[in-house]
Design a protein around this nucleic acid. Structure first.
Lengths: 143, 143
DNA sequence: TATTGTTATACTCTATAACTATA
DNA sequence: TATAGTTATAGAGTATAACAATA
């Protein structure tokens, strides 16, 4: 088992990660909080899906997902249609307006991250993503 | 420079990390939110320090630090004395009560993380901590 | 009766800006 | 005038619980 001191170090790094996330959030336009971007991004990556699937991908409660999705739908960035086969469910789809917004934001974020990216580089980023995925495997069990 | 798709993956992993953090936060007792633990933990690791140093270690604004510290001080877990050499500053010190609380909580968290830890292991954890530290180097520049 | 989703409520964390006290 | 810290305010995120509609 990993030593206690390592968890303390991990906590430190998680704080730092929080700072990075807040820095990214700061460049987002008004009316488009981080939660909205997350929804749009996942929809773009995985294609249409139901609320429950979105909640799973976001790793938050469905009540939270519902609010984020409502915010995005109110602005016409995604479409919520009842599932014909189960009318309790709704199917989420990215609209052309939503796709456009996402494209514009990617450009803005890239400019913002310029100096940062050069320091990290492809290989480092790949490793980081892999490592971050590892601890997640156990989450369902100890929660 | 790392590809755009990698940042999308990274965003996913950060969401997952968020879920892990919330899971840990859930086992904390009332009256002792995550922010309080962070303050106590840093004080235990680095010894006495000033507010500005604490804010730096927490990676948040000093106004936020002030609130967390006040919460902890109100409960007698740390001591805030004016710095004799500069009475604008205050020196933060962990009290015996604070140390005791920290010890108790470490036990609780360890139990909670049991299944999780065994999956990750020492080497993985070490690597993860190292990797997490890497991207942080550039934060000051692009922020 | 069980499941999908929504809404009401409450709590934590965060930054910005205005303010006090000291240097 | 500049710096260390505090406080007031406002905004984002989150979960729990009660509720509606459908299976």
């Amino acid at each position: 088992m990993a030593a206690q001191s390592q968890y303390e170090q991990l906590a430190r790094q998680l704080s730092a990660i929080g700072a990075v996330k807040r820095g990214l959030a700061r460049v987002l336009p008004n009316d488009c909080p981080p939660g909205s971007i997350a929804v749009l991004n996942l929809l773009d990556l995985h294609g249409e899906m139901r609320m429950s699937r979105m909640a799973e991908l976001l790793a938050v409660d469905m009540s939270v997902t519902s609010r984020h999705v409502a915010h995005v739908a109110d602005r016409g960035w995604l479409d919520r249609s009842p599932d014909p086969s189960d009318r309790r469910s709704r199917i989420l789809r990215l609209t052309p307006e939503g796709k456009l917004l996402l494209t514009e934001l990617c450009g803005a974020e890239r400019r913002e991250q310029g100096a940062h990216n050069e320091k990290v580089g492809d290989v480092e980023m790949e490793e980081l993503i892999k490592r971050l995925g590892r601890p997640r495997e156990g989450v369902g069990e100890w929660r």
